[in-house]
Amino acid sequence: MAHGDFVWCDLSTYRSDVTKGFYEAVIGWSYVRDWQSNGDPYFIASNRNRQQSGLFDMPAKYREIGLPSFWMSYIEVSDIEDTVARAEKLGGKIELKPTPFFKTSRIALIRDPLGAGFTVIEKPALPVRDNLASAGSMVWNALYVSNAAAVIPFYQALFGWISSVGDQSGRFAMKLAKRHISDVVELPEEIRGASQFWGVFIGVNDLTVARDAVEEMCGKILYETSEDRSVLIQDPDGAALFLRETGSAATVSEGQNVRETAGWKWKTLLALAILWIGVVFEVYLIWGILFLLWVIPALKSGKTYLVEPIKKLEHPVLYWALVSTWIVLSAVMIAYGLWPATS
């Protein structure tokens, strides 16, 4: 994972029992109750044995000011104190100062210069959003504003994102280390509403079926775009969420990431060649380096693989057992390669 990656989303709602039932019917999530650091309930939405999002009752201070229900995007940061300080200097507003989030993380709620809110999270122990994920997962995040130029410099300075030149539709692609990570989209108020907001996109298998379920469960269809198979819905408690049909180019924001990942995988080809050299010539040092190359992405992504995928968030003991094994094997192979046993 890296500073500036999207890693989680959750819903602040007034009627958790109603909204849980709504998303169970529309998306297929099931919920398990956990607890926030302050002792309040926090419901984890899951499907396919994967934790997908959170849901919790609106805090009292937001109820008092009449804040509507809302979906929140979480962005990983390397140093939350530094991020919060820089956000203030850049014209942002800190709604929630750094506070514990479960056992290992800390979060802070920030509003950008136009008022769109997002949460930053330090040490999330969460997987990076997968644009190609299956139904039920967060597949995209986009910022909808009245004036992109007023906020793009803020996000560039805060997260190191790089902006492309906007297209005719007022869409600006934001990249992190050459990855298309989000969009900033200018929309008129009659479509966007009065708020500036970060939109969360959840994948569904069939958009038509999902739309029908929304209406059957007393939700609303607010806006639909045919070109990327997405629809903006509103749940019975008033929170807005995008549904995007998976398995289409829309899942990766109009095919951008598909184009970026196409072509020769030279790193994989090089690693395969090195692997064969290690086997043919019995070079143990190469095996040590390859084990190390398995460790680094596992630590960054929070997932590893042995016969089947193992994710730190879902199976922490098994995950660390595997990663520790790779580290030990790497050290042994490197040591044996540098200082072979003498007969």
Rank of each mutant, 00 (worst) to 15 (best):
V7D: 01
D10F: 05
T19D: 11
K20S: 08
G21N: 13
V26S: 04
W29A: 02
D40T: 14
P41Y: 09
Y42R: 03
N47L: 14
A60E: 12
S69F: 12
F70T: 08
F70I: 07
Y74I: 08
Y74E: 04
E81H: 11
R86F: 04
K89M: 05
K93A: 06
I94P: 01
P98G: 04
I110C: 05
R111Q: 14
G115Y: 10
V120Q: 06
A125F: 15
G136A: 07
L143C: 07
P153R: 10
Y155R: 04
W161T: 03
A173W: 14
L176Y: 09
E186V: 15
G199L: 12
I202P: 03
L207E: 01
L207G: 01
R211Y: 00
A213C: 00
Y223H: 10
S230W: 00
V231M: 12
L232M: 14
A240I: 05
A249T: 04
E254P: 00
G255V: 03
Q256H: 12
V258D: 13
V258W: 12
G263L: 05
W266Y: 09
K267I: 09
L272P: 00
I274C: 03
V283C: 02
L285S: 07
L292Y: 15
P309K: 13
I310H: 06
K312E: 12
L313W: 06
A321I: 06
L322K: 10
V323E: 03
I334N: 02
P340N: 06
